[in-house]
Design a protein around this nucleic acid. Structure first.
Length: 618
RNA sequence: GCCCACGUAGCUCAGUCGGUAGAGCACACCCUUGGUAAGGGUGUGGUCAUGGGUUCAAGUCCCAUCGUGGGCUCCA
């Protein structure tokens, strides 16, 4: 099945300033166009500054992007942070010099003369003239036009648009952020260029907000939090991209898995378990050795027979399907598995929990008849949303990907599958985009992205039809007519992978998990040693009520214990001293600083269990 | 995999010009027994990622490897 994990960087969107999560107003849209012009213009100004500093610099491309801009350069030496400061300072001067941006359309000869010492520009000119690509490598429309923009001494091959004068760029609302390597044309066989990223806004306040947002992103970085909160570790000695779940991370995972299993039971799924390795011939038949081998680990030899570690669970589920003749009467079959798979990822792409080499998919396969498709798809979509909402995600963006040119399976089946997907999305009233021809070759799919607390989008859920595997494995069921038919097969993962979803959860909650997920839900804080026994007796009652509890019986002062609990982001702190012991109470302080105060132990238990039941933060 | 940067105590980091390793937190022990975000003292803890090289001398300079980070790329 498809990779349920989002492409790198898909989560990084800064929406709070521009759209506030709502629909974009006309005014905002105009502002957006203006921002884009500012950013694109800032890229040109930066290129001028770089060219002045490195007269031999070769320019590649420099577009506006979300939140800013970049420009790629071929330079004689690597850039340093000091270079960036210098370039940024020079940019401010250029802006102050107040150059007009002037567009010109020029002919080929002039273009070639103008950019004679700019090989990348010449290559772009070739491409534009051949009608293939525009300057961003996208297919161009209409007849090729060579357009340049000048401002002051600087000229660039560019379609625009730009602001009319450099002074429209607010010098206090720009900042250069980083240098990174980037291949020319994104092609690893072509030269590696240096890319400077910058950000640009209309006002200094917007810039400050954006930088503050980036700081917040950094503060919530799951790679830091999983370490600080003692949840998960990675080990050089154990190999990169392989997560180790510590006891506290394990508790959360267990809650997630238990909840997941219970939901699936209620949703009419069966839970299955399959092996971690399978014979080469299985992967040959499934097609993985032909199409997915570069993501699979090298085979191991078992008594002269090749075995592979599974990168996916589907072939195993199909083998189970085929253990006997299936009747239409037993369909749909909904088989779910928390299946741990291993995929080779190039070392450079590994990223905390968001991109790993071994992970557990919350996978399921649905086998059904054509008549059942619509209901099944609708049900899967509902089920997905219910699951995601349970974890505190409220906003979704849905993508429907349809039949690509190269595909397997009859168009009628594709048609039916796509219609069922579309109907389901519409029935749920979700905003969605259609990616025409963007489906996998084996079937159309829906991807759902969730929006986190910082407005970033993450892809977790994927629901994919598969017209390929049922054919390859010759899967059938006996219909009402006594004849054999090909079942529909749907792959789906809701959370995607537990590792990745966990990473997203950590960032979404900034490590302060809602009570039902918190590894420690309450900590007893005895004020003095004479309260420790009482604290333990209360802790036992809480444990019996099903709560995850600890007692901080160290000789620290109460204040220090509270601080420790705050740092651990424990939802409830229960202080017990003379007064509480006397009255058989606990004195509640919540993680958010609220102090509801003294209450009977039973009262606290009720309160906590209610928060657990309702998945409340506190 | 590629470009660049980084790797010093469990964690966060300092370490000057190459001259024989330091802080805070954590941990252990002792004192302290307190009322809503850090009480005090003492102590343990380092093959400076690994392996080579240069040098009288390497945490420091050079090379390689491993890992991490920012990106690129790929993503059935």
């Amino acid at each position: 099945m498809g990779d349920p994990r989002a492409p790198r960087g898909a989560g990084v969107f800064f929406r709070n300033l521009v759209s506030q999560g709502g629909e974009m107003s006309k005014k905002k849209e105009q502002e957006n166009g203006r921002l884009e012009r500012i950013r694109h213009s800032a890229a040109h100004v930066m290129a001028q500054a770089v060219l002045e500093k490195f007269p031999g610099a070769k320019l590649a491309i420099g577009p506006a992007i979300e939140n800013g801009f970049y420009y790629d350069f071929d330079l004689p030496r690597p850039l340093t942070p000091e270079d960036l400061e210098e370039i940024e300072a020079r940019m401010r001067e250029i802006i102050a010099e107040g150059y007009d941006f002037v567009q010109e359309e020029i002919d080929e000869e002039e273009a070639r003369r103008l950019f004679a010492d700019q090989p990348y520009k010449l290559e772009l000119i070739d491409e534009i003239l051949s009608g293939g690509m525009d300057e961003h490598g996208r297919p161009a429309e209409g007849k090729p036009v060579l357009s340049i923009y000048r401002h002051g001494p600087f000229v660039d091959l560019c379609r625009g648009p730009h602001v009319s004068n450099t002074k429209e760029i607010n010098p206090k609302a720009i900042k250069l952020l980083s240098v990174a390597g980037a291949y020319w044309r994104g092609d690893e066989h072509r030269p590696m260029l240096q890319r400077i990223y910058g950000t640009a806004w209309e006002t200094p306040k917007q810039l400050r907000q954006y930088l503050a947002w980036r700081e917040e992103v950094e503060k919530r970085d799951h790679r830091r939090l999983i370490k600080e909160l003692d949840l998960i570790s990675f080990h050089e000695e154990g190999g990169p991209g392989l997560a180790y779940w510590h006891p506290k991370g394990g508790r959360i995972r267990q809650v997630i898995e238990d909840f997941w299993r219970e939901q699936h039971r209620k949703g009419g799924y069966e839970i299955v378990f399959t092996p971690h390795i399978g014979r080469a011939q299985l992967w040959e038949r499934s097609g993985h050795l032909d199409f997915y081998r570069e993501s699979m680990y090298a085979p191991m030899d078992v008594e002269g027979v090749e075995y592979f570690i599974k990168p996916m669970n589907c072939p195993f589920h199909i083998l189970m399907y085929k253990t006997r003749r299936r009747s239409y009467r037993e369909l749909p079959l909904r088989w779910a598995e928390l299946g741990t798979v291993y995929r080779y990822e190039r070392s450079g792409v590994l990223h905390g929990l968001l991109r790993v080499r071994g992970f557990t998919q919350d996978d399921a396969h649905i086998f059904c008849t054509p008549e059942q498709i619509e209901d099944e798809v609708l049900e899967v979509l509902r089920f997905s949303l219910e699951m995601l909402r349970a974890f505190g995600f409220e906003e979704f963006q849905v993508y429907l990907a349809t039949m690509p040119e190269k595909h397997v399976g009859e168009p009628e089946r594709w048609e039916q599958a796509q219609n069922s997907l579309r109907k389901a999305i519409e029935a749920e009233g979700l905003p969605y985009e259609v990616d025409e021809g963007g489906g996998a070759f084996y079937g159309p799919k829906i991807d759902i992205k969730i929006k986190d607390a910082l407005g970033r989008l993450w892809q977790c859920t994927t629901i994919q039809f598969d017209f390929n595997l049922p054919e390859r494995f010759d899967m059938t069921y006996v219909g009402e007519d006594g004849k054999e038919h090909r079942p529909y097969m749907v792959h789906r993962a809701l959370l995607g992978s537990l590792e990745r979803f966990f990473g997203i959860l950590v960032e979404h909650y900034a490590g302060a998990f809602p009570v039902w997920l918190a590894p420690v839900q309450a900590v007893l804080i005895p004020i003095a040693d004479r309260h420790v026994d009482y604290a333990y007796s209360v802790a036992n009652r809480l444990r019996e009520a099903g709560l995850r509890v600890e007692v901080n019986d160290s000789s620290d002062r109460m204040q220090a214990k509270i601080r420790d609990a705050q740092m651990e982001k424990i939802p409830y702190m229960l202080i017990v001293g003379d007064r509480e012991m006397e009255a058989g109470q606990v004195n509640l302080r919540r993680r958010d600083g609220e102090v509801p105060g003294a209450m009977a132990v039973e009262t606290f238990i009720d309160l906590a269990l209610e928060a657990v039941r309702e998945h409340r933060p506190l």
